[in-house]
Amino acid sequence: MLSLSTIVLAESEGTTYNPIIPAPYDLLWSTVIFVVIVVAFVKFILPKLQKVLDERAELIEGGISKAEKAQAEAAAALEEYTAQLTEARAEAARIREDARAEATQILSESRDKASVEAERIAATAQKQIEAERQQAVVSLRTEVGSLATELASKIVGEALADDARQQRIVNGFLDDLESTVKAEA
């Protein structure tokens, strides 16, 4: 300030000026100009720019939240798929286990059934054989009796003349018997 006043004093001719005392016209025009600028900026220009800035911020934030949502959705889907996969695997294992158990059961069941069947068949065969044998014994018994009777009557009928005849009769009987057995077989 001191040096400014020195400059003022250096102005040896004409009017002296004091640069820190404003002239009335200076204040008037400054006020007019500054008020115009402030009104133009604060009322019109800056709000317009601010609106664009806000819109941009909103857009960016919207994009970010959208991306976040998508990411969350993807993570949820992945989790779900993983859960499903685990479940499916468990189910497959369970099914395999069941199948194996069932197969074992079926196998053992059929084995039991087969052995029962075999036993039954064997028993039936045994019974049949036994029955046939019984039948054979019965028929043999009756046939042997009649044969013996027939033979005896034949022997008696031929009056047993000689040994040769006797021999012939026995041979004939045996031949008969043989042919009977052959025919039966």
Binding site: P19, I20, I21, P22, A23, D26, L27, W29, S30, T31, I33, F34, V38
Partner: peptide, 12 residues
Amino acid sequence: SLIGLPIIMALW
């Protein structure tokens, strides 16, 4: 550089 305008700004 003319003090009037700085004064108006400072007063505001």
